[in-house]
């Protein structure tokens, strides 16, 4: 068995329940590799999730884990972090969980800059409930609730987090798995709110409906579509169409919430 699987996953719970070709397993693999690279203490990590395909991941991960209500993973994680400021808290969330049902929790966790690492498994659809369009479904893509094409414009979660005040925000895809591992590793080292948006294919609810071909074709699409943000910014405007930027969108240092909170506690204790 793969050494990371042996060390960090609940082997009696595998094989996992994700569909054949679902990218979520690849993201989970990169998360445990990043944790191993950093040599983090396994007993001092808490993985929190909400509801959805992505949120099944903590069930397979052998850390302290919490499977909470829809969209509220960050709210639970905030509580865990405030109670145990030394704990490494990782939130695993889907695109709908993070940006629709838990959209407000996301932007306010970013604004507070609380030291939590959020990995958004973005498959641009609500896979588990039958392929309804989510806030990240591209315009004109088909979904069970958009049989003639979605007319909404999609959210860019990485940029949303950056604008809302997160310390670190990045995006990669499951095709660029090594890069994804590196970004998760960077995010885990940030003291403050960090978010990595991992683009993942949903062959069952999204790929079939949108005639995206096989899983491998969907991966090849990621290779064609996603380019590094620096290369993207150098492209003339007419060549940017159809391309999406990936890489690190923001990496800045701001006061961290639990540290600021501790300062108040220390100050008031000192006043006595």
């Amino acid at each position: 068995m793969n050494k990371y699987v042996k060390k960090y996953l609940r082997n009696d719970k595998l094989a996992h329940m994700w569909c054949p070709g679902c990218g979520h397993g690849i993201i989970m693999h990169q998360i445990i590799k990043a944790i191993d690279n950093l040599g983090l203490d396994k007993d001092n990590i808490c993985v929190v999730s909400g509801i959805g395909c992505s949120s099944r991941a903590p069930g397979y991960m052998d850390f302290d884990t919490l499977h909470t209500t829809h969209g509220r993973a960050l709210a639970f994680a905030t509580g865990i972090k405030l109670a145990n400021p030394d704990m490494k808290v990782i939130v695993v969330s889907g695109d709908g969980d993070a940006s629709a049902i838990g959209g407000n929790h996301l932007i306010h966790a970013c604004r507070r800059n609380i030291d939590i690492t959020t990995i958004v498994f973005n498959n641009t659809i609500y896979g588990m409930t039958g392929g309804q369009f989510s806030p990240t479904t591209a315009t004109n893509d088909l979904a069970s609730t958009a049989p003639y094409g979605s007319i909404d414009r999609p959210f860019d979660i990485a940029k949303l987090a950056a604008a809302a005040g997160a310390s670190y925000s990045a995006r990669s895809t499951v095709y660029h798995a090594n890069n994804l591992e590196k970004l998760i590793e960077e995010a885990l080292q940030v003291k403050g709110f960090s978010l990595v948006e991992a683009m993942s294919m949903c062959p069952t609810s999204y790929g079939r409906r949108n005639k995206k071909g096989t899983v491998s074709d969907m991966l090849e699409d990621y290779k064609e579509t996603y380019i590094n943000i620096n290369a993207f910014n150098k492209l003339p405007l007419e060549k940017r169409e159809g391309k999406i930027e990936m890489g690190v969108f923001k990496n800045e240092t701001y006061p961290e919430y639990t540290a600021e909170y501790q300062k108040i506690i220390d100050r008031l204790k000192g006043d006595k």
Partner: peptide, 18 residues
């Protein structure tokens, strides 16, 4: 191994035959 979503294929040292 890198892109297998199911952890079903991997490289390992040959001494470990579990």
């Amino acid at each position: 191994e890198l892109r297998c979503p199911d952890f079903a294929i991997y490289l390992e040292g040959d001494e470990n035959e579990d």
